[in-house]
């Protein structure tokens, strides 16, 4: 499963950061870029990344399954990852979790029937000062969450 030209260009830029005999160093970035294009990492996509970087496929699977932010199965168009760790919990993350579950009608690690949302529980994002907070599709951090704020964010996600 070939990646698009834009993704390949981005991966090449990552490869250039490392010594010429250490292309494997770009595997985390390559998987991230592939996931951004495809939505998740299928076996075919990972095999492509392996071939592109000259790695054994198993070495790529190991990386993809070790780091939490890779999607090893299809997810909704919007993956919402809520931090529920202690500092966030002290600032209302469990209330946010209940509200999100009710509003979306799904539990953690589930996807809505229309394929729009997936809800995940995350570990510390390193932004506890803005608790409670969630990440949308690994890239957009939304902090200081209140019911009104959550409604607004969800309404904006077409």
């Amino acid at each position: 499963m070939m990646l698009g030209a834009e993704s390949l260009q981005k991966i090449d830029r990552e490869i250039a950061k490392y010594p010429s005999d250490q292309k494997q160093s770009a595997v985390m970035a390559a998987l991230r870029i592939a996931q951004m294009e495809k939505g998740w990492l299928s076996g075919e996509t990972m095999n492509f990344v392996a071939a592109y970087l000259g790695m054994e496929p198993i070495a790529v699977y190991e990386v993809a399954s070790f780091y939490n932010m890779y999607n090893l199965a299809p997810v909704g168009r919007y993956k919402i990852t809520l931090c529920t760790n202690l500092p966030c919990a002290l600032s209302g993350a469990n209330d946010v979790a209940r509200y999100l579950q009710e509003k979306l009608g799904i539990g953690f690690n589930e996807t809505t029937a229309d394929g729009k949302y997936t809800l995940r529980e995350g570990e510390c994002f390193g932004a506890c000062g803005e608790a409670p907070l969630f990440l949308v599709n690994n890239v957009r951090m939304c902090g200081g969450l209140t019911v009104a704020e959550i409604d607004k964010i969800l309404a904006e996600l077409e």
Binding site: M28, L31, Y67
Partner: peptide, 26 residues
């Protein structure tokens, strides 16, 4: 250069971090 992690607390441990830059499990 910047290297972006992808969700593994253990990579804050310095040798896990090095493994991660090398493109391996942390």
């Amino acid at each position: 250069h910047n290297h972006l992690g992808y969700g593994a607390y253990i990579c804050g441990e310095e040798t896990a971090l090095l493994e991660s830059i090398e493109g391996k499990k942390g």
